[in-house]
C-alpha cells in the first residue's frame, strides 16, 4: 500500500502546463522547477516526496514532451485521474511514474486528503471519508516498467543503449 498527500487538478491538464515550451531545451532539473508555473506558480516548492496528484478527465493531454519525468523528479509518488491521455500514459510507463485511471477519483478526494493506493487489490481509499474506489488495473508488463524505473533500464540490460 502506498499513501500520498493529495494535490487536486482539474480536467484536461495539458503537457504544456507541466513542461512549458520555453523549457524544452533545458535540463531535466530545470524542467522540473517549471512544472505548473503558468497555472499554479509555487507548486514545485510545496510538493513533497511521495505526494499524489488527483486529476480529472484526460490528464496529460497534449504533446510527447517528457512531462511524466518532471513529475517524478518533483517527487510525486503516484498519480490518479478519471482518465489519462494515451501519450502521457506511455511516458508515465517509460519514465517510471505510477499513473492509474480511477473513475470517480476527482470527486472522492479534496486537496490535502491522503490517498491510500493498493495496486494488488487495485483500489484506492480516502481515510478521511472512508470511501474506497476501484482503480483500473495497469496491464502487468506495463506495470513492471512503471515500477521498475521505466524503459531505460530494460534497454540497458539488453545492451541496446549505453548506460549513462
Amino acid at each position: 500500500m502506498m499513501a500520498g498527500r493529495v494535490w487536486k487538478f482539474g480536467d484536461n491538464i495539458n503537457t504544456d502546463l507541466m513542461l512549458p515550451g520555453p523549457y524544452l531545451y533545458r535540463d531535466a532539473e530545470d524542467q522540473a522547477r517549471a512544472v505548473f508555473m503558468n497555472n499554479r506558480p509555487g507548486w514545485v516548492d510545496q510538493v513533497r516526496q511521495g505526494d499524489t496528484i488527483v486529476g480529472g478527465f484526460n490528464y496529460g493531454m497534449g504533446s510527447s514532451r517528457p512531462a511524466a519525468r518532471s513529475l517524478r523528479l518533483c517527487g510525486l509518488g503516484f498519480l490518479l485521474a478519471e482518465t489519462i491521455n494515451g501519450l502521457f500514459f506511455r511516458n508515465a510507463v517509460n519514465y517510471g511514474l505510477l499513473a492509474c485511471e480511477c473513475p470517480g477519483v476527482s470527486t472522492a478526494f479534496d486537496e490535502g486528503d491522503t490517498a491510500e493506493l493498493d495496486i494488488e487489490a487495485w483500489s484506492v481509499r480516502n481515510p478521511r471519508s472512508g470511501q474506497a474506489l476501484a482503480v483500473l488495473p495497469v496491464p502487468e508488463q506495463l506495470l513492471a516498467m512503471m515500477l521498475g524505473g521505466g524503459v531505460y533500464p530494460v534497454l540497458e540490460r539488453e545492451g541496446l543503449i549505453a548506460p549513462r
Binding site: 504533446s63 510527447s64 517528457p66 511524466a68 494515451g86 501519450l87 500514459f89 506511455r90 511516458n91 517509460n94 519514465y95 496491464p139 508488463q141 506495463l142 521505466g150 524503459v151 531505460y152 534497454l155 541496446l160 543503449i161
Partner: peptide, 23 residues
Amino acid sequence: ARGVGGPDMLYAVTTGKAWFRVG
C-alpha cells in the same frame, strides 16, 4: 500512426517494436 515519447522511440529503433493499448 501514433505519437510516442522519446523512450518509446529508443525502444522502437533498437527493437523494431512498439506496444499499444488497444482502444
